[in-house]
């Protein structure tokens, strides 16, 4: 494992921790898209089908368990927790899951590396992860006041994607036969979706003003 991959995993972990910290301590999920969180839960469920059958390393298994557990925990908090759910911005979080899930599933059926069930689910998870942030970005755009923790959550997620691209470039040059077009292209699309957010995030940080995305 190279430094980019490890840093990417750590920023991914940070993003989840920041979000759980916000929900657990402030008891608020204001500005957080339930749609995006449910899509992530589905992403991890589809991707980690091999968690019991395919052992790669202890690190890998533990991280998978953390991402699976935390994604379902966050969904539970927003839907079921009697205090947290009151702060959920239902009015503005209107993105339809199916508009993202269905095209991703069809695409996974059509374009995959191997047409085995687990492989198709893995590919589906890659496509879905690439676009799962969209409801969250739409919600951020509709939210007038983005609090610091929500901004940091999205920032860490974007950083994780950017570091994974560095990881792929590194692996391409250091490992023989390391070519994964599907992973790379969906990963690149996913990272590009953050470009706009990053622009405004850095501007607000540089000018020391509150983050706000233009409608």
């Amino acid at each position: 494992m190279n430094i980019f991959r490890f840093s990417g995993d750590m920023t991914h972990l940070m993003s989840v921790l920041v979000l759980l910290l916000k929900i657990h301590t402030i008891k608020s999920c204001a500005g957080i898209s339930l749609k995006t969180q449910e899509l992530y839960a589905l992403v991890f469920l589809a991707r980690y089908l091999d968690i019991v059958t395919n052992f790669i390393s202890l690190y890998n298994t533990i991280m998978k368990l953390i991402f699976l557990g935390s994604s379902f925990m966050i969904v539970w908090y927003i839907r079921r927790h009697r205090i947290v759910r009151r702060s959920y911005d239902k009015e503005h979080d209107t993105f339809r899951h199916l508009f993202l899930v269905l095209p991703c599933f069809i695409l996974a059926l059509l374009i995959n590396e191997r047409s085995a069930f687990k492989e198709i689910m893995w590919t589906f998870s890659l496509y879905l992860e690439a676009v799962a942030i969209l409801p969250q970005l739409v919600l951020l755009q509709r939210t007038k006041n983005i609090d610091n923790l929500t901004g940091q959550y999205v920032f860490f997620l974007g950083a994780y994607r950017a570091l994974y691209i560095c990881n792929w470039i590194y692996r391409y040059f250091t490992e023989p036969h390391y070519v994964h077009w599907i992973t790379w292209i969906s990963g690149l699309v996913q990272t590009l979706l953050y470009a706009d957010f990053f622009y405004y995030y850095f501007n607000s940080w540089k000018n020391n003003v509150k983050l706000q995305l233009p409608a």
Binding site: F67, H180, T183
Partner: peptide, 10 residues
């Protein structure tokens, strides 16, 4: 093809 090597990322 080595499946382990394919999906060793998270």
């Amino acid at each position: 093809e080595d499946e382990d090597e394919d999906h060793d990322e998270l």
